[in-house]
Design a protein around this nucleic acid. Structure first.
Lengths: 246, 246
DNA sequence: CAGCTCATGTGAAAGGCTTTTACATGAGCC
DNA sequence: GGCTCATGTAAAAGCCTTTCACATGAGCTG
């Protein structure tokens, strides 16, 4: 009956060899399917084929494992944001919008990381390194906002770059949290989260005085199958799936 | 030793009389202090002075209790948003900004409800009544957006009211989630969440073509002790507590 | 008021998870 | 070959969830 277990043991011997990494991967998978609250230290151990006590050799407790995942998440997040920003090429506004899309894409493609990072209930300041990783990721947005701020047309009120960065962050985070998380528990939308955020950012930029009339050149992937509505369609019938306001 | 228990029992008799309500209140308190993941069915029962099995007479399981709290939260949320919107008085834009503030105020003043509603990991469509309550709350924002949309100056692109409503919702939710939750785990800010959101909405409205030059008349409460920076201060030194982008 | 009934609460028990502790294994190093 | 220490294991305590059979007493009925 305990054939599997014995065989596993035979395969790897008494020592696992790479348990820490295996636990991180297992936890990531579990979080993806059951949410950060649903995942279990014991489950991760089972998945890695070790006893329930083994993980304690690598993580102080369940929270530390969660925190490690969040940390790794912030690092990947930073990398992807950095790549999307691409130091403002080819032009600041275009790169800026790519940044927003990258935010959504991360929430969508890495729901496990995203929820460990933002929805696990971990205090932000749990560990200094976690906090630092989080701030480095935000730093990308801030650097982009800095460049954008320098371009605000003269004569327009110019909010501090920090504030602009926080605005963009909150828009992205709001859309991502409400509408773009993995497949779990997200709300239905009459449009794609990407289009929603793109329009939001465009209106915001216009409010800062940026000319945004350039006919949007379509989505970055012209072969996309979904029809791509113009970011700012003219007024239409308000019929939509959302709650009919009484 | 079991003096307390016996006394309690004597006070209320075998039947509690109002257990359901007592459990909801207890859970609300527990969520406020330990987060939606930290609260325990058993704890709530203990707090109400009943056995751990008693709650099952009123809620199918832990999730149903959580869901009931979220439901109640959405109802209060809707009520407060409705009051803030006040049917668009004295003017649409003013009322609109009040709406945003009410969103933040709710997140700040009712962190337990807020996290049960948005951070508990419950699937949105867990119960139809929950979903309906959520949509009614959003309906308030949507109705406000509808009125606002009708006022977009001619000549400006006019996004669908639904989209504007979603924009406002995502801004509010983003700011609230990142910066305005109760005392737990929120990020530090170089400004108040209220000012941040107000500026964000103002810029957004300007992007829609609304004149927003009216000198902001200051915060709603002129006797507030905190200095009230103008929502759109001119560019200043970017020094701030936030991560120094390398 | 006596008696019945059913909603509501209790106790005990099964099954999991977390975390600690003492002990086992074996990889790396003299 | 023998030592040592990082890494795993087994067992146990404590807590939580959920279920089940049973207890209580509030409210209806005659």
């Amino acid at each position: 009956m305990s054939w599997r277990k014995e065989q596993r043991r035979a395969e790897r011997g008494y020592h696992h060899g790479n348990l820490k990494e295996a636990l991180l991967q297992a936890a990531l998978g579990l979080i993806a399917e059951k949410g950060p609250g649903g995942f279990t230290f014991a489950d991760a151990a089972r998945m890695a084929g070790v006893s329930p006590a083994a993980p304690y050799r690598h993580f102080r407790d369940r929270d530390e494992l969660l925190s490690s995942i969040a940390q790794r998440g912030f690092e990947q997040f930073e990398a992807q944001l950095t790549e999307a920003w691409d130091d403002g090429r080819p032009d600041t506004v275009t790169a800026f919008e790519r940044l927003g899309k990258a935010y959504l894409a991360f929430a969508h493609n890495e729901p496990a990381f995203y929820s460990a990072m933002f929805e696990s209930g971990l205090p932000v300041d749990l560990s200094p390194t976690l906090q630092a990783a989080s701030e480095r990721a935000f730093g990308v947005i801030r650097a982009a906002a800095e460049r954008l701020a320098a371009m605000v047309p003269p004569g327009m009120p110019r909010p501090p770059a920090m504030m602009m960065a926080l605005h963009i962050w909150s828009m992205s985070h709001g859309v991502a949290s409400l509408f773009a998380r993995g497949d779990q528990a997200r709300r239905k939308l009459p449009m794609s989260a990407e289009d929603l955020l793109e329009a939001e950012v465009l209106i915001y930029l216009r409010g800062l005085g940026f000319p945004t009339d350039r006919r949007p050149s379509g989505p970055s992937d012209p072969s996309a199958k979904t029809a791509t509505p113009p970011p700012l369609p003219p007024a239409g019938p308000p019929a939509g799936p959302w709650g009919t306001p009484k």
